[in-house]
């Protein structure tokens, strides 16, 4: 797609991360006529783009492919005038001051009075021997990317949450057998898909077990599982492993600027504000009990509305400073920085 290399420097709002939270923020901000730039190190969609289907996003009576939903979010934001810069790397950043600056790919600088950081979370790794070695050589975190290569194969899925169970069902299209490895004695996903998985002829579950090592010559050939009740180790041959065990916050941009919880997720105000005026955090990066597309979209919406109020407040304030105070009226209003 054509993408101009030269971006304007000044924006009203910069959104970092083009997942559901960031794109919802962009839709609202662009409709509010804020000059809005969205940055993403990948293509738009965040984790949704690699989710094979989404069944619980309101407005879609039939399942929608994650990829299509992601593309629709992006098109909608662009339709209202937001600029989305794809595959960009932020090589320098200063978000602490009144003007927030970001350097892109070591060559371009963009700035804005307000930034919404919606960088989300990255898949968590197991941290067991063999995992780094076999990543991309049999271990994957993207079923839509790699699933098709496992036709007729026997594979393992690690994890028992929504992603793990959804993607296991997807993988049964290709694999002869999908073995879900769950730490618990149940699957902690939505009841509807748990039932489907447990009755699926190609899905088996190993309960209360965790991987302890991945083994093989060159490519992945086996996974060593520990039975968490007995401590017994057992070797399981496998053609491939998909890992869906939750996420780590991607908080690099706001490190040291904002309070975080014990797992590193960012604590914000109810309006997505942080202690830094003009800096908002939305989506999976936030400390919150539930991480869904719908909750990300809600966060993004709120962040955009709060940022809009903040930016307009700054503009009014600047206008007052520039011109002598008029007679009465809206003179006393100050920049709407978060209280």
């Amino acid at each position: 797609m054509p993408e101009s290399k030269d971006l304007p420097t000044r924006w009203d709002l910069i959104v970092v991360g083009a997942g559901p939270a960031g794109l919802a923020a962009a839709i609202y901000a662009a409709r509010a006529r804020l000059r809005t730039l969205v940055l993403d190190e990948s293509v738009p969609g965040g984790q949704v783009k690699t989710t094979h289907k989404v069944s619980n996003y309101p407005g879609f009576p039939e399942d929608v492919r994650g990829k299509d939903l992601a593309a629709a979010f992006a098109l909608q934001a662009e339709r209202f005038g937001a600029t989305i810069r794809r595959a960009v790397e932020i090589t320098e950043h200063d978000l602490a001051g009144p003007v927030k600056r970001l350097v892109l790919d070591e060559e371009e600088t963009v700035e804005a009075p307000a930034v919404v950081v919606a960088t989300g979370a990255r898949p968590r790794e197991l941290g067991v021997p063999g995992e780094p070695r076999f990543k991309g050589r049999g271990i994957s975190t993207c079923a839509t990317c790699d699933g098709a290569y496992f036709d007729g194969k026997a594979i393992h899925v690690i994890g028992g949450g929504n992603s793990a169970v959804e993607e296991s069902l997807f993988l049964t299209q290709f694999a002869r057998k999908v073995t879900i490895v769950s730490r618990y004695d149940q699957l902690k996903a939505e009841a509807a898909i748990v039932e489907e998985a447990l009755h699926h002829p190609r899905i088996e579950v190993v309960w209360h077990a965790e991987p302890r090592a991945f083994t093989g010559e060159g490519t992945l050939q086996g996974v060593r599982l520990e039975d968490l009740r007995t401590g017994a180790l057992s070797e399981h041959p496998t053609d491939g492993v998909f890992v869906f065990i939750g996420h780590h916050p991607r908080a690099d941009l706001v490190k040291g600027l904002v309070p975080v919880d014990e797992r590193g997720f960012v604590r914000t105000g109810e309006d997505m504000s942080t202690p830094v005026p003009g800096l908002y955090v939305a989506g999976d990066l936030r400390a919150k009990p539930f991480r869904q597309i719908t909750t990300a979209v809600a966060d993004g919406t709120i962040a955009a509305l709060a940022a809009q109020r903040y930016v307009k407040g700054l503009e009014r304030h600047a206008a007052q400073v520039m011109s002598p105070p008029g007679p009465g009226g809206a003179v006393a209003e100050t920049a709407g920085s978060p209280a």
């Binding site: 595959a87 990255r122 990543k135 991309g136 050589r137 049999g138 994957s140 990317c145 290569y149 490519t219």
Partner: peptide, 29 residues
């Protein structure tokens, strides 16, 4: 031994594989 997409493999002048392969969603420029 490539079983993930994308995977970038590097070769030196002599056609020997060198360095670490890059893969996944996090390949930075």
């Amino acid at each position: 031994g490539v079983s993930g997409s994308p995977t970038v493999v590097f070769f030196d002048r002599a056609g020997q594989e060198r360095g670490e392969r890059l893969g996944g969603d996090e390949i930075k420029r």
